[in-house]
Design a protein around this nucleic acid. Sequence first.
DNA 1: GTTCCGCATGAATCGATAG
DNA 2: ACTATCGATTCATGCGGAA
Lengths: 287, 287
Amino acid sequence: MSFINKIIHGDCEDVLRDFPDNSIDLIFTFPPYANQRKETYGGVKPDHYVDWFLPKAEQFLRVLKPTGTFVLNIKERAINGERHTYVIELILGLKKQGWLWTEEFVWHKKNSYPGKWPNRFRDSWERLLQFNKQRKFNMYQESVMVPVGDWADYRLTNLSETDKTRDESKVGSGFGKNISHWVGRKKIYPMNVIHMATECSNQGHSAAFPVDLPNWFIRLFTKKDDLVLDPFIGSGTTALAAIELGRRYVGIDIHEKYCKLARERTSKVQVRLPQFAELSSAYMVLS
Amino acid sequence: MSFINKIIHGDCEDVLRDFPDNSIDLIFTFPPYANQRKETYGGVKPDHYVDWFLPKAEQFLRVLKPTGTFVLNIKERAINGERHTYVIELILGLKKQGWLWTEEFVWHKKNSYPGKWPNRFRDSWERLLQFNKQRKFNMYQESVMVPVGDWADYRLTNLSETDKTRDESKVGSGFGKNISHWVGRKKIYPMNVIHMATECSNQGHSAAFPVDLPNWFIRLFTKKDDLVLDPFIGSGTTALAAIELGRRYVGIDIHEKYCKLARERTSKVQVRLPQFAELSSAYMVLS
DNA sequence: GTTCCGCATGAATCGATAG
DNA sequence: ACTATCGATTCATGCGGAA
């Protein structure tokens, strides 16, 4: 199929019409939020968000395999002092379309945007809504197990991204040793609250989310060589995660500028060694 | 008014009819979740939950002061492999009734119930939905500020639950010193994700939640001598929190058994010293 | 090569002001 | 009256340069 491992320019609703039924294993996306990123995505008004989204979701439903999963990262804005209801209306709309609303994960963003208001605190969490076509779907829980207890937390707080990259350049040497620490350690299944910081220094795209977020869901819901779709690919983070984990990807974006950026970023990345994938999982704080 | 500082037996929908308009400063409640706790609450079926709840909420709306707040602790169950939609439908119903959906806090329960299922992880969070009658309401943000940064984390990780209880019994002595450390320290406002463990030792009531949870919201939305209502009082935890903080309370429960338990527990508690109230706040992990 | 410190910067939100 | 824009508020994080 010609769309494998490509970043395609266009409206996902149109682009996906050319895709065969039941061909995607995981849809992971971080769509433009209502009325945000106006300069880059045109700003869908909150009141029209559901109508804007549902036709696209109909294509998602068609191209997703019966055993596949659709993960939607979203959060409603505060408008006129209240939380807008477009997200919960979207859930109801998707259910009416035939999706099963299997689960809602919480992504706790430790470094949320600063600010102070008389009537609310800083918003530090987002929803990760999981939808499926049927009750039985592929889920590889073992691949996201975490070492039990404080040890993992300690590693995480004390290991900066630069440290990580430095180690990565040594491929396997320094890493092998570290991995040995975990052998024999008791592992547990994570819960449905995910603690992760947002990416601060991003590559010119306004939506900064850490690559570990798609990484985690890709490991959970796909196996090697499975096909991951992000219909709002943006700077390409979902594709990067897929490549690193040895999965195939398709990315779609309505802006040629972001397609270009995503192509540039993905062209520089190679499949990580197996132990690498394992490792990056261990650096996530899950609780 | 004769209902002040009382636990009243009856259906809150009926009991509240005798209450005057605009008399309550904060409604904090942990209602029976749909179809759970069958033996104690008769088990409202998920599909009927909204219809069961809304008439009661109409009374809440009437008795709440215009500057007051309604905080609803709730989480939908997974039924037939999906999250049920009664909670999000309830939000829409309450909005139609005239409530403003101001905010949704996440309570991250660190020690959630263990278990493993083929298609989902352990559920470790609940919603704390905040509703108001108008955009301007009373909010005392300073009362829930937390020490900034790593220092607070350090304190918290290194202070066990037993340490906490032990110190509390010494009323003021050991504590006074610790508090002095915080004076002059930079404090910050918390975010809308609350980290707190569930109460391990529950008092014979099936839904045990930590007293620190109502404590936090009572401090945030009321001042001294304000009136706090819990229309599903259960074992009386909300009332206990109110008493400790020098607020007045009204509790209602449909089961005489729980009314009795709540009366017993509240009769044993006195207003904490001021520094105590402050203190218990500092031990909360908020981020 | 470490550790430490300063600094820019985020899917934010409100209220006021302007059109 | 309703929408669009702007300034003020504010903090965890990663990065780069310095010690």
